[in-house]
Protein backbone atom coordinates (compact mmCIF):
# COMPACT_ATOMS: atom_id res chain seq x y z
CA UNK A 1 0.00 0.00 0.00
CA UNK A 2 2.70 2.47 1.00
CA UNK A 3 4.72 1.59 -2.05
CA UNK A 4 1.68 2.15 -4.20
CA UNK A 5 1.16 5.60 -2.71
CA UNK A 6 4.82 6.52 -3.15
CA UNK A 7 4.68 5.35 -6.74
CA UNK A 8 1.60 7.39 -7.40
CA UNK A 9 3.10 10.45 -5.74
CA UNK A 10 6.13 10.13 -7.95
CA UNK A 11 3.90 9.93 -11.01
CA UNK A 12 1.99 13.00 -9.85
CA UNK A 13 5.20 14.88 -9.49
CA UNK A 14 6.33 13.78 -12.91
CA UNK A 15 3.02 14.71 -14.53
CA UNK A 16 3.03 18.15 -12.93
CA UNK A 17 6.57 18.69 -14.09
CA UNK A 18 5.72 17.80 -17.67
CA UNK A 19 2.55 19.89 -17.57
CA UNK A 20 4.56 22.84 -16.35
CA UNK A 21 7.16 22.39 -19.03
CA UNK A 22 4.75 21.96 -21.92
CA UNK A 23 2.65 24.89 -20.83
CA UNK A 24 5.67 27.09 -20.30
CA UNK A 25 6.79 26.68 -23.88
CA UNK A 26 3.28 26.70 -25.29
CA UNK A 27 2.50 30.08 -23.74
CA UNK A 28 5.44 31.62 -25.55
CA UNK A 29 3.79 30.75 -28.84
CA UNK A 30 1.02 33.20 -28.04
CA UNK A 31 1.27 36.40 -30.07
CA UNK A 32 2.41 39.57 -28.34
CA UNK A 33 3.82 40.29 -24.93
CA UNK A 34 2.24 40.99 -21.54
CA UNK A 35 2.96 44.66 -22.14
CA UNK A 36 0.92 45.21 -25.27
CA UNK A 37 -0.67 48.62 -25.15
CA UNK A 38 -1.50 50.75 -28.16
CA UNK A 39 -0.26 53.83 -26.32
CA UNK A 40 3.35 52.80 -25.85
CA UNK A 41 6.12 52.72 -28.40
CA UNK A 42 8.03 49.57 -29.41
CA UNK A 43 11.16 50.82 -27.61
CA UNK A 44 9.33 51.13 -24.30
CA UNK A 45 7.81 47.70 -24.77
CA UNK A 46 11.27 46.32 -25.47
CA UNK A 47 12.58 47.86 -22.23
CA UNK A 48 9.74 46.26 -20.31
CA UNK A 49 10.45 42.87 -21.89
CA UNK A 50 14.08 43.22 -20.85
CA UNK A 51 13.18 44.25 -17.33
CA UNK A 52 11.40 40.94 -16.75
CA UNK A 53 14.06 38.97 -18.59
CA UNK A 54 11.61 37.90 -21.29
CA UNK A 55 14.20 38.65 -23.97
CA UNK A 56 16.50 35.84 -22.85
CA UNK A 57 16.36 32.58 -24.79
CA UNK A 58 13.26 30.67 -23.75
CA UNK A 59 15.40 27.80 -22.49
CA UNK A 60 17.23 30.08 -20.08
CA UNK A 61 13.95 31.55 -18.89
CA UNK A 62 12.60 28.07 -18.37
CA UNK A 63 15.53 26.98 -16.22
CA UNK A 64 15.24 30.18 -14.22
CA UNK A 65 11.55 29.63 -13.69
CA UNK A 66 12.08 25.99 -12.76
CA UNK A 67 14.66 27.04 -10.21
CA UNK A 68 12.21 29.56 -8.73
CA UNK A 69 9.45 26.98 -8.62
CA UNK A 70 11.68 24.56 -6.75
CA UNK A 71 12.13 27.33 -4.21
CA UNK A 72 8.39 27.74 -3.96
CA UNK A 73 8.23 30.88 -6.09
CA UNK A 74 5.74 30.66 -8.95
CA UNK A 75 6.59 34.08 -10.32
CA UNK A 76 4.64 37.30 -10.39
CA UNK A 77 1.78 38.67 -12.42
CA UNK A 78 2.96 41.18 -14.98
CA UNK A 79 -0.38 42.88 -15.14
CA UNK A 80 -1.31 43.10 -11.48
CA UNK A 81 1.33 45.13 -9.68
CA UNK A 82 3.88 42.30 -9.66
CA UNK A 83 1.74 40.42 -7.15
CA UNK A 84 2.96 36.85 -6.53
CA UNK A 85 0.97 34.29 -8.47
CA UNK A 86 0.52 32.13 -5.39
CA UNK A 87 -1.02 35.03 -3.52
CA UNK A 88 -3.45 35.76 -6.34
CA UNK A 89 -4.52 32.12 -6.52
CA UNK A 90 -4.89 31.97 -2.76
CA UNK A 91 -7.10 35.07 -2.85
CA UNK A 92 -9.38 33.71 -5.54
CA UNK A 93 -9.66 30.12 -4.41
CA UNK A 94 -11.93 30.64 -1.38
CA UNK A 95 -14.69 32.15 -3.52
CA UNK A 96 -14.57 29.34 -6.04
CA UNK A 97 -14.54 26.85 -3.18
CA UNK A 98 -17.46 28.53 -1.43
CA UNK A 99 -19.71 28.39 -4.48
CA UNK A 100 -18.39 24.99 -5.56
CA UNK A 101 -18.83 23.30 -2.21
CA UNK A 102 -22.34 24.67 -1.82
CA UNK A 103 -23.21 23.36 -5.25
CA UNK A 104 -21.61 20.02 -4.47
CA UNK A 105 -23.32 19.48 -1.14
CA UNK A 106 -26.70 20.60 -2.43
CA UNK A 107 -26.32 18.68 -5.67
CA UNK A 108 -25.13 15.42 -4.12
CA UNK A 109 -27.73 15.41 -1.36
CA UNK A 110 -30.61 16.22 -3.67
CA UNK A 111 -29.25 13.86 -6.30
CA UNK A 112 -29.01 10.97 -3.85
CA UNK A 113 -32.48 11.60 -2.50
CA UNK A 114 -34.05 11.83 -5.93
CA UNK A 115 -32.05 8.86 -7.17
CA UNK A 116 -33.16 6.80 -4.21
CA UNK A 117 -36.74 7.89 -4.75
CA UNK A 118 -36.60 6.83 -8.37
CA UNK A 119 -35.01 3.47 -7.57
CA UNK A 120 -37.38 2.59 -4.77
CA UNK A 121 -40.40 3.42 -6.85
CA UNK A 122 -38.93 2.06 -10.03
CA UNK A 123 -41.28 2.13 -12.95
CA UNK A 124 -43.73 4.42 -11.19
CA UNK A 125 -44.69 7.97 -12.02
CA UNK A 126 -42.00 9.25 -9.65
CA UNK A 127 -39.32 7.34 -11.47
CA UNK A 128 -40.28 8.85 -14.79
CA UNK A 129 -40.67 12.28 -13.26
CA UNK A 130 -37.22 12.23 -11.67
CA UNK A 131 -35.62 10.88 -14.85
CA UNK A 132 -37.17 13.63 -16.95
CA UNK A 133 -36.07 16.16 -14.36
CA UNK A 134 -32.53 14.90 -14.63
CA UNK A 135 -32.51 15.14 -18.40
CA UNK A 136 -33.94 18.64 -18.30
CA UNK A 137 -31.34 19.55 -15.71
CA UNK A 138 -28.48 18.77 -18.05
CA UNK A 139 -30.25 20.19 -21.10
CA UNK A 140 -30.57 23.81 -20.01
CA UNK A 141 -27.33 25.63 -20.80
CA UNK A 142 -25.89 27.35 -17.77
CA UNK A 143 -25.83 30.79 -19.38
CA UNK A 144 -29.50 30.51 -20.23
CA UNK A 145 -30.31 29.41 -16.72
CA UNK A 146 -28.22 32.17 -15.17
CA UNK A 147 -29.71 34.83 -17.43
CA UNK A 148 -33.25 33.68 -16.78
CA UNK A 149 -32.71 33.41 -13.04
CA UNK A 150 -31.29 36.92 -12.91
CA UNK A 151 -33.95 38.42 -15.09
CA UNK A 152 -36.97 36.72 -13.62
CA UNK A 153 -36.15 35.53 -10.10
CA UNK A 154 -34.07 38.51 -9.04
CA UNK A 155 -35.30 41.42 -11.14
CA UNK A 156 -38.97 40.54 -11.43
CA UNK A 157 -39.67 38.64 -8.23
CA UNK A 158 -37.09 40.34 -6.05
CA UNK A 159 -35.71 37.14 -4.58
CA UNK A 160 -32.03 36.45 -3.91
CA UNK A 161 -29.28 38.70 -5.20
CA UNK A 162 -27.83 39.63 -8.57
CA UNK A 163 -24.30 39.22 -7.40
CA UNK A 164 -22.22 37.05 -5.22
CA UNK A 165 -21.11 39.02 -2.15
CA UNK A 166 -17.77 38.11 -0.60
CA UNK A 167 -17.67 38.20 3.17
CA UNK A 168 -16.64 41.68 4.20
CA UNK A 169 -16.97 42.86 7.78
CA UNK A 170 -16.36 46.54 7.08
CA UNK A 171 -19.05 46.59 4.47
CA UNK A 172 -21.42 44.71 6.73
CA UNK A 173 -21.59 41.51 4.74
CA UNK A 174 -21.73 38.60 7.13
CA UNK A 175 -21.11 34.94 6.44
CA UNK A 176 -24.85 34.48 6.12
CA UNK A 177 -25.23 37.30 3.62
CA UNK A 178 -22.44 35.81 1.61
CA UNK A 179 -23.97 32.34 1.68
CA UNK A 180 -27.36 33.78 0.78
CA UNK A 181 -25.84 35.50 -2.23
CA UNK A 182 -24.18 32.21 -3.21
CA UNK A 183 -27.48 30.39 -3.55
CA UNK A 184 -28.24 31.28 -7.16
CA UNK A 185 -24.73 30.66 -8.50
CA UNK A 186 -24.48 27.44 -6.51
CA UNK A 187 -27.89 26.34 -7.73
CA UNK A 188 -26.96 27.06 -11.34
CA UNK A 189 -23.85 24.97 -10.93
CA UNK A 190 -25.54 22.14 -9.07
CA UNK A 191 -28.01 21.14 -11.76
CA UNK A 192 -25.42 19.00 -13.47
CA UNK A 193 -24.35 17.49 -10.15
CA UNK A 194 -27.95 16.63 -9.28
CA UNK A 195 -28.51 14.93 -12.61
CA UNK A 196 -25.31 12.93 -12.53
CA UNK A 197 -25.65 11.85 -8.91
CA UNK A 198 -29.28 10.98 -9.33
CA UNK A 199 -28.68 8.80 -12.36
CA UNK A 200 -25.81 7.01 -10.69
CA UNK A 201 -27.62 6.56 -7.42
CA UNK A 202 -30.67 5.17 -9.14
CA UNK A 203 -28.85 2.52 -11.12
CA UNK A 204 -26.69 1.48 -8.16
CA UNK A 205 -29.64 1.21 -5.82
CA UNK A 206 -31.63 -0.78 -8.36
CA UNK A 207 -28.77 -3.21 -8.65
CA UNK A 208 -28.41 -3.50 -4.88
CA UNK A 209 -32.15 -3.94 -4.38
CA UNK A 210 -32.08 -6.85 -6.81
CA UNK A 211 -29.17 -8.54 -5.10
CA UNK A 212 -29.38 -11.72 -3.11
CA UNK A 213 -28.53 -10.31 0.26
CA UNK A 214 -31.39 -7.87 0.12
CA UNK A 215 -33.66 -10.74 -0.80
CA UNK A 216 -32.26 -12.58 2.19
CA UNK A 217 -32.85 -9.65 4.49
CA UNK A 218 -36.42 -9.39 3.25
CA UNK A 219 -36.85 -13.13 3.65
CA UNK A 220 -35.67 -12.83 7.22
CA UNK A 221 -38.66 -10.63 7.82
CA UNK A 222 -37.21 -7.12 7.81
CA UNK A 223 -39.65 -4.66 6.34
CA UNK A 224 -38.83 -2.73 3.23
CA UNK A 225 -38.02 0.56 4.96
CA UNK A 226 -35.58 -1.17 7.26
CA UNK A 227 -33.93 -3.00 4.41
CA UNK A 228 -33.52 0.15 2.40
CA UNK A 229 -32.26 2.20 5.30
CA UNK A 230 -29.91 -0.35 6.84
CA UNK A 231 -28.57 -2.29 3.90
CA UNK A 232 -29.37 -1.01 0.48
CA UNK A 233 -28.70 2.72 0.79
CA UNK A 234 -25.35 2.29 2.41
CA UNK A 235 -24.12 -0.15 -0.19
CA UNK A 236 -25.41 1.88 -3.07
CA UNK A 237 -23.71 5.00 -1.77
CA UNK A 238 -20.18 3.60 -2.02
CA UNK A 239 -19.88 3.77 -5.80
CA UNK A 240 -21.57 7.17 -5.81
CA UNK A 241 -18.61 8.52 -3.86
CA UNK A 242 -16.37 7.81 -6.84
CA UNK A 243 -18.12 10.31 -9.05
CA UNK A 244 -17.92 13.03 -6.40
CA UNK A 245 -14.21 13.48 -7.11
CA UNK A 246 -14.45 14.30 -10.80
CA UNK A 247 -17.47 16.46 -10.09
CA UNK A 248 -15.48 18.43 -7.54
CA UNK A 249 -12.82 19.13 -10.12
CA UNK A 250 -15.49 20.14 -12.60
CA UNK A 251 -17.01 22.55 -10.10
CA UNK A 252 -13.68 24.12 -9.22
CA UNK A 253 -12.40 24.54 -12.76
CA UNK A 254 -15.46 24.81 -14.95
CA UNK A 255 -17.48 27.60 -13.40
CA UNK A 256 -16.47 30.44 -15.70
CA UNK A 257 -19.94 31.25 -17.00
CA UNK A 258 -21.36 31.31 -13.50
CA UNK A 259 -18.48 33.45 -12.27
CA UNK A 260 -19.09 35.89 -15.10
CA UNK A 261 -22.80 36.18 -14.53
CA UNK A 262 -22.71 36.48 -10.76
CA UNK A 263 -19.54 38.52 -10.40
CA UNK A 264 -17.69 35.83 -8.47
CA UNK A 265 -14.00 36.78 -8.15
CA UNK A 266 -13.01 33.17 -8.75
CA UNK A 267 -10.19 31.24 -10.33
CA UNK A 268 -11.69 30.73 -13.81
CA UNK A 269 -12.17 34.45 -14.19
CA UNK A 270 -8.56 35.00 -13.16
CA UNK A 271 -7.41 32.54 -15.79
CA UNK A 272 -9.53 34.17 -18.48
CA UNK A 273 -8.16 37.64 -17.69
CA UNK A 274 -4.60 36.38 -17.51
CA UNK A 275 -4.99 34.62 -20.85
CA UNK A 276 -6.29 37.68 -22.62
CA UNK A 277 -3.38 39.71 -21.25
CA UNK A 278 -0.56 37.25 -21.91
CA UNK A 279 0.18 37.16 -18.19
CA UNK A 280 2.44 34.10 -18.57
CA UNK A 281 3.26 33.14 -15.01
CA UNK A 282 -0.29 33.66 -13.86
CA UNK A 283 -1.69 31.43 -16.61
CA UNK A 284 0.98 28.89 -15.83
CA UNK A 285 0.30 29.05 -12.10
CA UNK A 286 -3.45 28.56 -12.43
CA UNK A 287 -2.98 25.78 -14.94
CA UNK A 288 -0.50 23.85 -12.86
CA UNK A 289 -2.79 24.34 -9.91
CA UNK A 290 -5.68 22.87 -11.91
CA UNK A 291 -3.55 19.91 -12.92
CA UNK A 292 -2.48 19.48 -9.32
CA UNK A 293 -6.12 19.44 -8.23
CA UNK A 294 -6.92 16.93 -10.90
CA UNK A 295 -4.21 14.41 -10.13
CA UNK A 296 -4.51 14.66 -6.35
CA UNK A 297 -8.27 14.27 -6.39
CA UNK A 298 -7.89 11.18 -8.57
CA UNK A 299 -5.32 9.81 -6.14
CA UNK A 300 -7.52 10.51 -3.13
CA UNK A 301 -10.46 8.78 -4.75
CA UNK A 302 -8.38 5.76 -5.61
CA UNK A 303 -7.11 5.56 -2.05
CA UNK A 304 -10.52 6.14 -0.54
CA UNK A 305 -12.04 3.58 -2.80
CA UNK A 306 -9.38 1.14 -1.69
CA UNK A 307 -10.31 1.76 1.90
CA UNK A 308 -13.99 1.36 1.23
CA UNK A 309 -13.80 -1.60 -1.09
CA UNK A 310 -11.15 -4.17 -0.17
CA UNK A 311 -11.20 -5.79 -3.60
CA UNK A 312 -9.78 -2.69 -5.21
CA UNK A 313 -7.09 -2.45 -2.57
CA UNK A 314 -5.79 -5.87 -3.45
CA UNK A 315 -5.62 -5.00 -7.10
CA UNK A 316 -3.91 -1.72 -6.37
CA UNK A 317 -1.30 -3.45 -4.27
CA UNK A 318 -0.48 -5.81 -7.05
CA UNK A 319 0.14 -3.28 -9.75
Amino acid sequence: MLRYVVERLFLIFLTLFVVLTINFFLLRLMPGTPFDNPKITPAQKELMVRKYGLDDPVGVQYLRYLNDVLHGDFGVSFRLQDQPVTKLIAMRLPHTVQIGSMALVFGVVVGILLGALAAIYRGSFWDGFVTILAVIGVSIPSMVLAALLQHYVVAEWGMFTYLYNPIDATRGISVWDSLYSSILPAFSLSLYVISATMRYMRSELVEVLNSDYILLARAKGLNKTQVIMRHALRNALIPVITIVGPMTIGLLTGSLVIEMFYGVPGLSRLLLNATSQNDYFLILGVNVFYSFLFVTVILIIDLLYGVIDPRIRLRGGKS
Partner: peptide
Protein backbone atom coordinates in the same frame (compact mmCIF):
# COMPACT_ATOMS: atom_id res chain seq x y z
CA UNK B 1 -16.48 43.24 -9.94
CA UNK B 2 -14.59 42.26 -13.03
CA UNK B 3 -16.61 42.44 -16.20
CA UNK B 4 -19.87 43.21 -14.44
CA UNK B 5 -22.83 43.32 -16.79
CA UNK B 6 -24.56 46.62 -17.29
CA UNK B 7 -27.93 45.20 -16.25
CA UNK B 8 -26.45 44.29 -12.90
CA UNK B 9 -24.83 47.68 -12.46
CA UNK B 10 -28.10 49.46 -13.24
CA UNK B 11 -29.98 47.26 -10.84
Amino acid sequence: IEGVSNDTAVQ
